Measured scan of single mutants.
Amino acid sequence: MPVRRGHVAPQNTFLDTIIRKFEGQSRKFIIANARVENCAVIYCNDGFCELCGYSRAEVMQRPCTCDFLHGPRTQRRAAAQIAQALLGAEERKVEIAFYRKDGSCFLCLVDVVPVKNEDGAVIMFILNFEVVMEKDMVGSPAHDTNHRGPPTSWLAPGRAKTFRLKLPALLALTARESSVRSGGAGGAGAPGAVVVDVDLTPAAPSSESLALDEVTAMDNHVAGLGPAEERRALVGPGSPPRSAPGQLPSPRAHSLNPDASGSSCSLARTRSRESCASVRRASSADDIEAMRAGVLPPPPRHASTGAMHPLRSGLLNSTSDSDLVRYRTISKIPQITLNFVDLKGDPFLASPTSDREIIAPKIKERTHNVTEKVTQVLSLGADVLPEYKLQAPRIHRWTILHYSPFKAVWDWLILLLVIYTAVFTPYSAAFLLKETEEGPPATECGYACQPLAVVDLIVDIMFIVDILINFRTTYVNANEEVVSHPGRIAVHYFKGWFLIDMVAAIPFDLLI
């Protein structure tokens, strides 16, 4: 008679799926529990143990900040960024110097990925580790590398530091407007667009060049630039800015003055950032001319202004700041037409079709709590990747769950009947059967004279019903998954307890 339990259901295979997918890609990662103190490590794979030199037993239950890997060259700011990422709910990448158990130093890129439950609360953290440099290539500990984003994938490793954006290309926007319009339909740009040429040739750093990471940081200074100062900065030398009595002219307006920039070969870094931020506020060169004239017309309804409409929906549905990093990277690809469009465009503009998908598509409701890094690593669709929660398995109709209350009560009843059979069957065979043979035949009273025979008949009927119930009862397979398919249940029961239950259900007393 089957006594099969499996009270692990309803099970959740999400954690096993993450481990299996990460292991298949030869990654070095740990999984931490966000619900406990210090976000203790609950799993670390073999790749991480080989990377740091510690065994799994030495890593388990330690804080996922990996303070046991810190050393003299470990930056405090990087460690603080990892700790801050564990307090938030967004994906974050941090470069930090770690030390192995043998004392060797290596520069590592740590990717902190939160995993949320159905309520939107962070319950786990996945920390992925990628070695960037070994100890002989690690720089000085005073050099802070965590304020910069990861290198873009479309640049060669040897040319990542030679990417320079020439400031004269930004200063000569109005001069290039006529050349853009003359391109017409034969050019790649839309009317009114501004073409910015980027020099990728390796050259020595000069005062006129600005690194790509500095251009990325310009967006942080746009908020500090007032509207009046932006307007004066875009007017140009024809209309000098008016300053109040006793007030000095704005240095932001002076930063885009061609006369002032041409007199000296070098520009201050602050002026460069502010000038680029001011130019980015204009949607095209037409807006710059309109600002000089004193009238700013409404933005025209053409394809170039609607190019950012799908980007707005993608940004609203993005799951991490990696989408913004990807957008900034692609927006700086050289030799393309940049349409400086305000994100607050007309909502009635139709979304044009684009061959290049900048932001990841909208994630469906079932995966809105899973970050983009987890979705990318697992390579699963929205119909396959579940949320991290207890999910009731989908069972067929008329199927009994093996952990249901009805099955528990039924098993206790069958257990009592088995005990009765084990006690009274030998007793009936030894004593009652002998008395029946010696006594007179009682054929007239039937079952009324033999109450134990009636009980034995009921017990046999219950055993037959138990066999039928076992054909529709779920079970737990070797992978700790609840199986509810009727065919698989029948095959599993035939290979197991079916023969024993059938022999126990045969009414031998009635056959004798």
Rank of each mutant, 00 (worst) to 15 (best):
N12W: 10
A293E: 08
I82Y: 05
P299A: 04
A217G: 13
G186Y: 11
L324A: 14
V279F: 13
R56E: 03
C265P: 13
L380P: 01
Q84H: 03
K21L: 06
L173I: 03
A307G: 12
I126V: 12
R27V: 07
H368C: 13
A211E: 08
F340N: 15
V110D: 01
G103L: 08
S239V: 07
G24M: 14
S182G: 13
L256Q: 06
G6I: 07
P298E: 09
Y99I: 01
N38C: 09
A83K: 08
S283G: 09
G294V: 09
C66T: 01
P245H: 04
S179K: 15
F348M: 11
A175I: 01
I336H: 14
D197Q: 06
H147R: 07
E289A: 11
I30F: 01
L165W: 11
P245L: 11
A57C: 12
A89V: 13
S153G: 09
E91W: 13
I333H: 14
S209V: 13
L225V: 10
T65G: 03
D197I: 01
C108V: 04
F106I: 05
A382W: 15
A204V: 03
H221Y: 08
V195P: 06
P361K: 09
T162Q: 08
S304H: 12
P300C: 07
S250N: 09
P240Y: 15
A382M: 03
N45C: 04
A40F: 05
R164M: 06
D342H: 05
D46Q: 09
N38M: 06
L167W: 15
V132S: 12
T371K: 12
S283I: 05
P334L: 01
P240K: 11
D213T: 14
A228D: 06
M133H: 14
V370S: 01
S278I: 14
Q247M: 07
A34C: 06
G226Y: 06
Q61R: 13
S264C: 11
S283N: 13
G158S: 15
V3E: 14
C66S: 01
H7M: 11
E372L: 04
D46R: 10
L378G: 01
S284R: 03
P249I: 11
G184A: 15
L107R: 14
L69V: 01
A293N: 15
Q25E: 14
L127C: 06
P72K: 06
S283W: 01
K344T: 07
V325Q: 14
P361N: 14
G149H: 06
D286A: 07
D213A: 13
C276S: 07
P202R: 09
E357K: 09
I19Q: 03
L210N: 06
Q335D: 11
V3D: 14
Q11L: 11
K21V: 13
Y43I: 01
G314S: 09
G47H: 09
S379A: 05
R242D: 04
R4Y: 12
G53S: 01
S275K: 05
K373S: 04
I363T: 09
S104V: 07
P352M: 03
A268F: 07
D102M: 01
L109T: 08
I19R: 01
V131S: 12
G183D: 11
D342A: 04
H221D: 05
G236Q: 01
T319D: 14
V110I: 06
Q25R: 11
A350G: 10
P249F: 07
M291R: 15
T145E: 03
F348D: 12
S313G: 12
Q84W: 07
N12R: 14
I123P: 13
I31V: 10
K161D: 11
L200G: 15
P72S: 05
G238T: 03
M291T: 10
T162C: 12
C49S: 13
S239I: 07
G189T: 05
L210F: 11
R4C: 14
T329D: 11
C108I: 01
R35S: 15
H254Q: 13
I359H: 11
T65Q: 07
E274G: 08
N220K: 12
W154A: 14
A169G: 15
D259F: 15
S313R: 11
V196T: 01
G224A: 14
Y327F: 12
N146F: 15
R366L: 07
E95R: 13
P157G: 09
D286R: 05
L316R: 05
S263N: 05
V122F: 03
K28H: 11
H221V: 10
I358K: 06
V384C: 02
A228R: 09
F68N: 01
S140Y: 15
M60H: 01
K344W: 06
H70P: 01
G314F: 08
G88M: 12
L385C: 04
